[in-house]
């Protein structure tokens, strides 16, 4: 009995306190405010790290995401892309560029009547896979496309 108590207390003392704080909602890992900039995802150096930052590591391939990007971009500094999701209850769209210094490029949350549809212009450092990750009903879906770059977007 006493031994168990020791173990429990020790557990709380180390990682337990943090876990308890998380559970209680005192510290929310990625969002202290509704739209706190997701530093861990945006500053991740690779695709896997960025996906972890979005909690989207296990996104499933989907054909219901329409993703338009040029096959060849003459200028990597301005690559227009267009995304819309036909997956019901899509709540967010993220865009990641695999070979950029930081993979995550943009992340959008849609509420109150906004259609899950966004267009924007990206910088691509070099020819790369561009990956779109969509969140719908708490699940993640993805689609990707390679964009060839003839002049990089990050040169001097």
């Amino acid at each position: 009995m006493d031994k168990l108590r020791r173990i429990v207390l020790r557990g709380i003392g180390s990682g337990g306190a943090l876990a308890a704080a998380l559970a209680a909602g005192v510290l929310k890992p990625t969002q202290v405010l509704a739209a706190e900039w997701n530093k861990s995802a945006f500053e991740a150096k690779d695709l896997a790290g960025a996906l972890r930052g979005l909690n989207a590591s296990n996104a499933a391939e989907s054909r219901d995401i329409l993703f338009r990007a040029p096959d060849i971009a003459e200028n990597g500094a301005v690559v227009p892309i267009d995304i819309s999701s036909n997956i019901p209850n899509t709540t967010s769209i993220a865009v990641l560029v695999e070979k950029n210094p930081n993979a995550l490029s943009a992340y959008f949350d849609f509420t109150s009547g906004a259609l899950p549809d966004v267009s924007l212009r990206l910088k691509l450092a070099q020819t790369s896979m561009v990956k779109v990750v969509v969140k719908a009903d708490g699940k993640f879906y993805t689609v990707q496309k390679e964009v060839k770059v003839t002049v990089g977007g990050c040169g001097g």
Binding site: S105, A106, F108, F110, T111, S112, S119, L120
Partner: peptide, 17 residues
């Protein structure tokens, strides 16, 4: 309606639709 977070990979003078 839309809350976006963006990084350095968005082009100069960003355009969104």
């Amino acid at each position: 309606v839309v809350e976006g977070q963006i990084g350095t990979a968005v082009s100069r003078n960003p355009v969104f639709g």
